[in-house]
Design a protein around this nucleic acid. Structure first.
Lengths: 337, 337
DNA sequence: CTGAAAGCGCTTACAG
DNA sequence: CTGAAAGCGCTTACAG
């Protein structure tokens, strides 16, 4: 029981002395030229007096919408996606929308009718975040905005996108390291087949290729500490080891720290380490991590704004949110040799 | 447009050659003794053939519910609450419920009609997690289950609760430390006025009081690295410093590590450190953190199950989810002196 | 055992 | 400028 039957538009109509349809017109903002300003005013004040708020279920039934948007993320346990949800939910709430979350199914390709044929609740749109390249398509008719999935998101049909400027972020890291004097760079690369990691790898490779004397090595790993430690160890065990380890994620950087220490190397005097994302972890580590801050909450907020635009029939332009290089204690000039 | 107008119960009725009300009865599970088994079977198969799924908006309108539950948490940026949401949403989805999240407003007491008078969408119930003691009440008529808020949740009216066995968890930590030979314990305590932290402090104080030669010191801090480092430094700077630092959170433990290192102390040979929660961070730190694992996802799942019980008119019994001591590398016997 | 009908609270043609 | 009415897709008395 929703707290002693809330007032309905009928109650407002009675209070204002008008018909229920007039109430709907006024409160729906479709009255100009159809209802006199005076009437509109009295309707509004009656609604305020009664504390009226429209019944969404009735509205949804009539309109055939659910005012619910699905946010799909790779995982909710990674610290990155909480803020994405928060940003999306904040904007959604302002427009009377709810957000439900779902994680990408393991079989990314999914059944023919898409990964969300299952949800009990009908859905008005999808915010697809950080999807794997092979998860393209399968969205049927549902409006979708792709987040952190690359500008080329869906080949063919153009889909609105909101992305991070990860290439620029990676270039900033590379430039920072190059400026410090590093030439031999090791890339501890996240293995998941996501656009963002491909973009990072490409940007890093370009910068190092243009660097006189630049040498890039590379080892892939899962986004967890143990796997990252293994990968970093492989890189560091090379005959001519890198003097800096560029990691695709802060968590991976934590693994790189461990690899370095296990080999008796100090961070940053023996080897510099950089992260990506700037989650809580970055300042919990010692030394604190030089990384790129990605505005996760803003990603969710702008993505939802774009989806709302799309649902209103507009075509939101692609957006790119810049990352910010945050220099802390994990980078230093390479040891002279 | 929800993907080419989905079939309605009317379509199913036509397909099965029965009336729409019969369809509703059968699919709603209220047919026994009112519809013949043969008819029921044919309705079911017609529904399956058409891929029918009931329109929630219509159902909600008719029933006066929203099939939406509000999860209130202190913050979504802490890594702990993602899993809580995940667990709650998983159970909710099985029953056709959605979950929306909201964070506790800053003015915890809130207006008379509660902190969630605002949400646009009407809600059927609330899952209130980790609430501050002063946020009690203000829920009006809405069914609520309290999570991680203590058994005494709301004085007066009994409210179903799901809690962690934090006292036992803290006792396990204290016993582990005592077994190692520690007598002087420093408690780096989370300052937020939440039940869970009071329970931890009380449990620790009891054990240490019962420990021959036991001495407990205590410093409060916010749940962030810098504040924790300050608090730990104060404790460690005492004339007779503790040989072990018990931290209320893994993030606080990270601050304690930093304090120790800044003072030239090694973890664990000079000072043992323990955390609480076992988030990602615990294995990212060096040495890896001895801590208590709290089943966060299970908290959400059991909480939702209890709320669903409550909405069905049952009175779910209080539940307590045990934590598990995970011994890793941050604890060792105190240095002989 | 089965069906016709009312009604949840909206939005939106349609009349006036 | 305003109102009476239809109808979105359900659930549930009520008749038969």
């Amino acid at each position: 029981m929703p707290a002693i039957s809330r007032p309905t538009s009928k109650d407002v109509a009675q209070e204002a002395g008008v018909s229920q349809s007039t109430v709907s017109l006024v409160l729906g903002g479709k009255w100009s030229g159809r209802v006199s300003p005076a009437t509109a005013r009295s309707v509004r004040s009656a609604a305020a007096r009664l504390g009226y708020r429209p019944n969404q279920a009735a509205r949804n039934l009539r309109l055939g919408t659910s005012r619910t948007v699905l946010l799909m993320v790779p995982t909710l346990t990674a610290p990155f996606f909480g803020p994405v949800y928060t940003g999306a939910a904040r904007v959604a709430a302002r427009h009377g929308f709810g957000v439900v979350v779902s994680t990408w199914p393991d079989d990314a390709a999914g059944p023919a009718d898409g990964p969300f044929a299952a949800p009990d609740e009908a859905i008005d749109g999808v915010l697809a975040s950080s999807m794997a390249a092979e998860a393209l398509g399968g969205f049927g008719e549902t409006p979708v905005v792709m987040l952190d999935s690359g500008p080329a998101g869906r080949p063919g049909a153009p889909v609105p996108t909101v992305d991070f400027g990860v290439a620029d972020g990676m270039r900033a890291i590379a430039a920072h390291l190059a400026g410090l004097g590093h030439r031999r760079i090791g890339h501890v690369a996240a293995a998941p087949d996501q656009w963002t990691f491909h973009a990072r790898a490409d940007a890093l490779a370009e910068v190092v290729a243009d660097l006189p004397g630049g040498v890039l090595t590379r080892a892939g790993c899962a986004i967890d500490v143990a796997s990252a430690k293994d990968a970093a160890t492989r890189l560091l065990a090379a005959p001519e080891p890198p003097t800096a380890l560029v990691c695709d994620d802060d968590l991976i950087a934590a693994g790189a720290y461990k690899a370095a220490r296990a080999l008796g190397l100090d961070v940053p005097s023996d080897v510099s380490v950089t992260g990506f994302d700037d989650v809580l972890l970055a300042t919990a580590l010692e030394p604190e991590l030089t990384t790129v801050r990605l505005p996760a909450e803003e990603l969710g907020a702008q993505g939802m704004a774009a989806l709302l635009d799309l649902l209103d029939g507009r075509s939101p332009a692609p957006r790119v949110l810049p990352g910010e290089l945050v220099v802390r204690g994990s980078t230093a000039p390479p040891r002279a040799r």
